[in-house]
């Protein structure tokens, strides 16, 4: 099918891949629980077909789109990206998807659109973590990008990984992947995309604004208030060797630096 053919359009990091079982067995997806193995254990209850994405706000063509309609006519590509979690571990993942820019072109942002706001599904019937009163998270999960970040060719909407349809625990059926930002920006199981004039509220920023900024660009110079961001454990590692590698500015995707020209990245963390 289409997902399998995506391998023909391939680009990205030339580093050894994190094995499939780790990419799909070790996840942060609090809608299914805060433990790393909770998503793999619990996400089978998620219904991903049919899937509707509401496109709203400053666009010429708002509406409720079946996922297939959003993807229609676009070529799926394989992109091998590093994923740097804000918790100081990282993976290398072969995603399959389409550039977000291609989808945005379909719905045509108006001249007023400055930001893209994303919302995840938050259905307590399908997602046990949403029922838990202890996460402190104000569901649904929300994320956002500046329009120029969203239009950058590296920004991907993923529907698969490792040549297969996206597993539920990885944010099926439709998720964002922004490889130069900490993993929490790459919002999963998206049901709503809204183009806005002002900066949208984002989940981790709402929860702890001193620790998680709107930009959340990977930056070894700016520590998390509670831990260092100067290096990361590349997974999988082993019991006696945590496999520390130095963290790179923008996670090594230096081509995005021009997006932030003139900005103080210590203040806009």
């Amino acid at each position: 099918d289409q997902v399998a053919k995506a391998k023909e359009v391939k680009s990205g990091a030339d580093e050894s891949l994190t094995p499939y079982q780790d990419v799909t067995g070790y996840n942060n997806f609090y809608e299914f629980g805060t433990g790393k193995t909770d998503p793999a254990d619990n996400a089978h209850t998620l219904q991903t077909d049919p899937w509707t994405v509401t496109v709203a706000g400053e666009v010429e063509k708002p509406g409720d789109y079946p996922l297939e309609t959003l993807l229609e006519g676009l070529t799926l590509e394989e992109r091998i990206y590093r994923l740097r979690c804000v918790e100081a571990w990282s993976m290398v993942i072969p995603w399959i998807g389409v550039p977000l820019a291609a989808i945005l072109k379909k719905v045509q942002p108006t001249s007023k659109a400055k930001y893209v706001a994303f919302t995840s599904l938050a259905d307590p019937e399908q997602m046990p973590g949403v029922k838990s009163p202890f996460t402190g998270i104000d569901w649904p999960y929300r994320e956002g990008l500046r329009l120029d970040e969203a239009m950058h060719p590296l920004t991907l909407m993923a529907v698969g990984l490792y040549g297969r349809t996206l597993p539920n625990q990885n944010g099926a059926p439709f998720r964002l992947v922004v490889p130069w930002k900490y993993g929490f920006k790459s919002i999963k199981s998206i049901v709503r995309i809204e183009l806005t004039e002002s900066e949208p509220a984002t989940t981790w920023n709402m929860l702890a604004p001193g620790e998680y900024g709107f930009y959340a660009n990977v930056n070894p110079e700016v520590d998390h208030p509670r831990w260092s961001q100067s290096r990361e454990r590349r997974l999988p590692n082993s019991f006696f060797d945590p496999n520390w590698v130095p963290t790179r500015m923008f996670n090594g995707y230096e081509q995005v630096a021009s997006l932030y020209k003139g900005m103080d990245l210590k203040r806009n963390y």
Binding site: Y26, L235, F239
Partner: peptide, 15 residues
Amino acid sequence: EAASGQLGPDPAEVF
């Protein structure tokens, strides 16, 4: 669990 590799891809951290 550690000896049999049951602690996942980041075993020392979990340990």
